[in-house]
């Protein structure tokens, strides 16, 4: 199979393709480093409060873990979806390296489908949580009767003041929505980036000689996936 006629454009500040590629790769790794600290700060705050307000955190994760399809929690479904999408991402990089453009396009679409599926499940979760009344807005936070009863029971078991526990419970939800929300934002950006990749792939821009963009955006997706691997046990499996 002959190589695609397109040559790789080298930006004027770079000496050659190799240098451009090296710079782009290092650039994405450095950027992901900043993202680690970004999410790390949030996770640090969450973990500190988990230790301080364990009862409330436990109550929170009972709800997050309880939204289930076919007996499996939505968080676990999301984890499965994202892990599979990372597989399709890795395969799409491989497809580019082997010059298999049609396979690449299919894999890109598959990744986007999984990404959108993730977002869909998230949306369903958020809707469910809205109905449970746990969105931590000032006037929006009114947990329904079942949740409130659970809270009271937990308060009595530990001797805690129910009003205090309610406040801590609300804090859990603040962290939950903040962390999953920022993560979801990154997913939406990821789907957008993959749309860009798809458009260019359909124009045949990615060849074994010029597939840096696929690799770099793939790295971003892997990172967002990795963040979820941390968020899932932290938010859903508090025991």
């Amino acid at each position: 199979m002959t190589e695609a006629a397109t040559t790789v454009h080298v930006e004027h500040q770079f000496d050659d393709v190799e240098q451009q590629r090296e710079a782009a790769t290092l650039g994405i790794w450095a950027f992901l480093g900043t993202e680690v600290l970004f999410f790390g700060g949030m996770i640090c705050g969450y973990v500190v409060y988990r230790r301080l307000y364990f009862t409330a955190w436990h109550q929170g994760s009972l709800i997050t873990d309880n939204f289930r399809f076919l007996g499996i929690s939505s968080g676990a479904w999301n984890t499965a979806v994202l892990l599979t999408s990372s597989l399709t991402v890795a395969l799409s990089v491989r497809a580019t390296q082997l010059g298999q453009n049609r396979a690449l396009i299919k894999l890109l679409i598959a990744t986007m489908v999984f990404g959108i599926a993730f977002l869909g499940i998230k949306a369903a979760e958020y809707t469910h949580e809205y109905h449970e009344g746990v969105i931590p807005g000032e006037s929006m936070f009114h947990p329904d009767d079942e949740v409130t009863a659970d809270l009271h029971r937990a308060a009595d078991n530990t001797g805690a003041n129910p009003a205090t526990l309610r406040g801590q419970f609300r804090l859990f939800w603040l962290f939950y929505f903040f962390m999953t929300g920022v993560h979801a934002l990154h997913m939406i950006i990821g789907v957008g980036l993959f749309t860009f990749l798809l458009i260019r792939a359909r124009r045949g821009k990615y060849t074994p000689a010029s597939h840096a963009q696929v690799e770099i955006i793939g790295l971003y997706w892997h990172f967002v996936d990795l963040v979820w691997i941390f968020l899932f046990p932290l938010l859903y499996l508090v025991k």
Binding site: T55, N157, T158, G159, A160, N161, A163, T164
Partner: peptide, 21 residues
């Protein structure tokens, strides 16, 4: 007095209410 559940004396059940409010 405010958060009795935080430290409970060994051997006693968790029954003290909070007087925070």
């Amino acid at each position: 007095i405010l958060y009795p559940e935080a430290k409970m004396v060994v051997g006693y059940p968790n029954r003290m209410p909070s007087f925070k409010s």
